[in-house]
Design a protein around this nucleic acid. Sequence first.
RNA 1: GCGCUCGUAGCUCAGUGGAUGAGAGCGUCUCCCUCCGAAGGAGAAGGUCGCAGGUUCGAAUCCUGUCGGGCGCACCA
Length: 591
Amino acid sequence: MLGVPLRHTVRDAVARALRRAVASGDLPAPDDAAALDALVAGIEVEIPGNRDHGDYASNVAMKGSKVLKRAPAAIATAIAKQLRDEASERIHGGSGTLGPIASAEVAGPGFLNLRLRAGLLGDLLDAIVASPMSWGHLALAPGSAPYRVNIEFVSANPTGPLTVGNARGAFVGDLLARVLEAAGQSVTREYYFNDFGEQVRRLGESVIALRDGVDVPENGYKGDYVADLAAAIPPDVATRAAAAPKSSGEIDAEGYNGMVADDEVAIIGRWASERIRAGIESSLAVLGVEFDVWRSEGSLYTDGYVDRAITRLREGNWLEEREGALWFKSTAFGDDKDRVIRKSNGSFTYFGSDIGYIVEKFSRGHDRVIYVWGQDHHGTVARLRNAGKALGFDKESIEMLLVAWVRFVRDGVEMSMSKRAGTFITLDELLEEIGVDAARWYFASRSATTAIDFDIEAAKEKSSDNPVYYAQYAHARMRSILRKAAAESLTPAASIGALLDDHTSPEAKLARAIVRLPEVVEDSAMHHETQGVTTYATELATAFSAFYRDAKVVDTSAPERSAGRLRLVAAAAASLSASLRLLGISAPEEM
RNA sequence: GCGCUCGUAGCUCAGUGGAUGAGAGCGUCUCCCUCCGAAGGAGAAGGUCGCAGGUUCGAAUCCUGUCGGGCGCACCA
């Protein structure tokens, strides 16, 4: 019961009623039986914008007008009659429970306005209180296994600390993972990083330059962290580096073998890079973002996945040797040019690594792989998905979520972000200023694909007015009420009981807000979005505030009513806590 | 030039086919603590949903065009 969104229950009831109306002759059977099935399968119910119209509404009558050859109002009337019958009888052929719909009315051009039976809401709230940690998690369809999803995100090169520019991807990926897990999917969080090649060499050269007190090369890294690294080279690394040959400068020409190069630049670069990577890992942990898999680019070569990908493409005749280079014939998929996998100098392009990585990811049994990328990567989306198809994978199972730009401004002035120039704000610095909970809420509440402005000064100054505190405050207040009641020897009722019979009561309004959570989870998981969760948390907090204003909970002069309301508050706290957990935001007992 | 993407309240953003209400937060203005937590509540002002056509019972939402912003078009990493 807990894991099924209420609208499914309502939709099923409308479907039953429609079929019964046809079977009983109240509505004509379509000439084509499949047309009725299609109509039933396409039934939608939604919570109307104007809650006076009911708990749910369906437009099935308008959609079915053509197939059933009746005016929408007539169809809606026939369905409403069946729904009303079901509410007082036992569900025909069902488990013997009452139908979920208390009242069904026809309105407007043929809308079917539905109100839930109070007992159904009460039972659901009782179930929430009984197992609060299950609330917000969707049940798998009977007999089905969890869907296995790989989400790769952040994946910033370990050549410098994470910047605020990386923050959005980190939060978006983690939030998506949490939402999919709540929806019953099995998620692997993955970080892909470059551990060899040109970038790492530049890092090594920069560290060496600062160690030796000379100018950093033009393409080197200049941030303060580089100097810190130069001062922190451990003795064993220094010894090995001193014994190694100086940089040849041509390692890249040896292709991926460059990763095992043993010149001074490579040794220092690899050490510095790993140290930075470890720092990134702890920064992310502070954000509440933890990865299951850290995959290095080099391992795709040493473990043979790039070779395997090339072999498979060759077997499919998707490759071509030309001008000394190896090309993927992506023009066959509509791309405007073919793409190089291995350059004429023998080294591989990033695209080469990417195809090896796809093979590697699917070899682990994932049903779907999701890449969380910056918007600037959109040009590579089609080619990688096409390569996936050429490799024999379902194109639909490879998905790229393009996270839009964040324009960081301070006091209205845009800030440039460059690791090489050292003019960036680190993630750690941002969090010191505004806090993890506020940052998480900020990114969760905005569509990942929309560019946003982030004014750091404004975020800092307004932090106490941030909506995240509104939600947390409401939770703290709920818990406070429960504590106070216990202190006055009032305990929550064993059941919500008749508390919700009047659908206009403060209790009923709060109850309707509480039970919506599974629908929010389902929508978020389906659309790969999280802003619905923050909207929900705000709505629930608002609904609670209204209830709190209108209904005295802790009231020793009316212990029975008090007990019922306490149980409702317990359910509200469970739901608010669950939605904050979904966002990775703390739900404080007091503030 | 080609492609992708975004234009919604003073600001930051939700809403992406439904009903006599296009919402939230911040900001502005007016009120409310002898009363379960004022990090709260009640209310007000503020919008030609960039513009112009089209599709349909119905469009902020879909299509076309157009204007404006962002991004991408490497044998770079």
